[in-house]
């Protein structure tokens, strides 16, 4: 009996101490856990990089970058053009991480890429040794309404300043249908070569740039994975992939008597002679008639169907291998 008298309070004390320990632990876990939850949600928000904030060359994809970058600013220091800066707390970019805004100071694409060399963590991929392979973003001629070249002028500034001129940006010539007598030289970005340096955006003469550099994911579309380009497949296969003889041909629904030069008619298995003068049709559908009222002229050499043959391999509309 004496022994139980002595041990009971001791057990009770031990139990109280254990309860206290458990409560303290729970309190600490809950308090710090709540802070962690808030911080975690903030971290999730911080992954939303604004569209116009670009990462330095060789930067890992944003989700990886925020784990790899330790915010030391060495890339900022070694950038000879003061392009890069570290995000401040009020900047809508994860605090302390490097970025640049193309419209202000674009990347000058140094051949030795000092920013990447300076990075101590691989947040900027040291495997990037050719600056032309950098993909900081992708330029997109975003506004066809204000771009001076789309208005028919020869501004060409974005094209001229492009460090990868004639590859990353080309001028595509199209007839100017407004004047009917001029050409339009449309700046066209090619994602295969564009590094996203932002020189075009910076140089755009408009008050608000018509060409802008966006993260590739924003600027680029993607074909359905099952899509195949018929003309590419034909080139690979060295010929048509289908039996053209058994192709179902629907009526062309042209006004009676209309003849389209060079037009292949699978039903008849014939092609209208390219040089043949089409019969004048008073009510030719729009697009078939030129501005002066003349019926569409014969297709120029090199266009599908222009080489008259009994059975051309590419009916119009299915691609001509050009």
């Amino acid at each position: 009996m004496a022994s139980t008298d002595e041990t009971a309070p001791a057990v009770a004390r031990k139990s109280v101490a254990r309860r206290q320990f458990l409560f303290d632990t729970a309190r600490m876990a809950c308090g710090v856990g709540m802070l962690g939850l808030g911080l975690g949600l903030y971290a999730k928000q911080s992954k939303a990089l604004p569209a116009l904030a670009l990462r330095p060359p060789g930067a890992l994809p944003e989700a990886d970058f925020l784990g790899a970058c330790i915010r030391c600013g060495l890339c900022v220091r070694d950038c000879p053009y003061d392009t890069l800066s570290l995000a401040r707390p009020e900047t809508p970019v994860a605090t302390g991480t490097p970025f640049f805004t193309a419209r202000q100071i674009p990347c000058e694409m140094c051949e030795d890429i000092p920013c990447v060399k300076a990075c101590p963590t691989g947040a900027l991929d040291h495997g990037l040794t050719d600056i032309n392979k950098a993909r900081m973003g992708l330029a997109a001629l975003i506004d066809h309404e204000t771009c001076l070249n789309f208005l028919g002028l020869r501004c060409d500034v974005c094209y001229r300043v492009c460090p990868v001129i004639d590859k990353a940006i080309t001028l595509e010539v199209l007839p100017n249908t407004r004047t009917g007598r001029h050409s339009m030289f449309l700046p066209t970005v090619h994602s295969e070569h564009c590094t996203g340096c932002g020189k075009c955006e910076q140089a755009c003469v408009l008050e608000e740039a018509a060409i802008k550099v966006y993260p590739v994911a924003l600027a680029k579309g993607a074909l359905g994975r099952h899509y195949r380009l018929g003309w590419e497949e034909q080139k690979k296969a060295g010929g048509s992939l289908i039996d053209e003889k058994s192709m179902l041909d629907l009526p062309d629904r042209l006004p009676e008597g209309t003849r389209l030069p060079g037009h292949y008619d699978p039903g008849g298995g014939t092609t209208a002679a390219p040089g043949s003068v089409p019969a004048p049709v008073p009510s030719a559908p729009p697009g078939m008639v030129g501005p002066g009222g003349a019926v569409v002229p014969p297709a120029p050499p090199g266009m599908p169907g222009s080489v008259a043959g009994p059975v051309p391999s590419h009916p119009p509309g299915l691609g001509g291998g050009q």
């Binding site: 911080l39 975690g40 971290a43 911080s46 925020l66 605090t95």
Partner: peptide, 10 residues
Amino acid sequence: LTGVVLWELI
């Protein structure tokens, strides 16, 4: 859990 260098945010 977040994949972000967490404490450096604040």
